[in-house]
Amino acid sequence: MALKSLLLTSEDYYFLLRSPDPDDFLRYLTTTAYGESLSGWDWHTVEAESEFNQHLYSELARNFQKVGRGLKKREGLFIRSLAQRLVGENLKVVLRSIHRGLPPDRALNLLLPVEKLSSLNFRELLNIGSIRALADYLARTPWGPPLARALPRYLREHSLFPLEMSIDLWVFDCILQGRHSLSRRDRRLTGQLLGIMADINNIIWAARFKEIYGFPGEEIYQYLLGAGSLGEPRRRHDLAFAPNLAVMIDRLPRRPYGEVLKGAMDLAAVEEGLTHYWVKTLEKVLILPPFQIGLPITFLLLKELEIHNLITLFTGLILKIPSDRLSQLILGKAAGSRYV
């Protein structure tokens, strides 16, 4: 079965958006690739949204496994490194939980069901009493160095931000390292994809750090990724030291980011423009000829995006948000194969 056929089609989104209530929404969703994950689930519970997330992410984890198994060993390894993004997200949940002193039982619901993608026992990690103890506990794992790097600053400032950034940077680095084992052709393709991913991250991060956190240029510079077309020191400097958003956009290369962000006045518009560009890039790769690594990568990334869409729709239905409003929040509707 083609991977593309496992993604929701524009017709699926049409019917999902027409659903008058969560019951109808889930009834339709069970006719898609999510049928197996949602089969027998009763959403009428207090933790419905959290359970829904769990179901969808377990489906995503299954897809990562399934795709990884179907590829050559070196390609499978790269897919595993891509899955580290989800593991990193869970580790951040553990950090936040310990930092805020949340009871482990409550934090458990916030974890993504990615046990099969990682050797870490998150249930056990949640029971560790302090961040320092956690860093010590993970010292012998790949997660040890990034945590150890940011731990002194955490202890000094009592802020999770450096730890979380350190994890994000390490995950991206891990993905970049993973592509070295690929064939030349696949390396080139993944290089292009990861480059765009890094560029988008750099632009959004720089904008956020500037607009929301008010970080100085020197600090922003430290947090930016050294990959992609904006990864060179000069480009990173331009992003980090731009006095405001408008100047930052102005300093971006005209193609493609200057055009993509033309007219963007605020952070929300920047994020929206870049996300659309990212989805379009993935869709373009998805229609390339088969037997190349781009196909499974884009499938998994679009699947992740699809899960975001479904969570948005489900939450929107529970909150009774009108479908036309929800429709604007959905990205990549035409990713899946179209019904003919």
Partner: peptide, 12 residues
Amino acid sequence: LDPAKDIYRLEE
């Protein structure tokens, strides 16, 4: 035929 899904198409 996919009865569970087709019904949405037919209703539409």
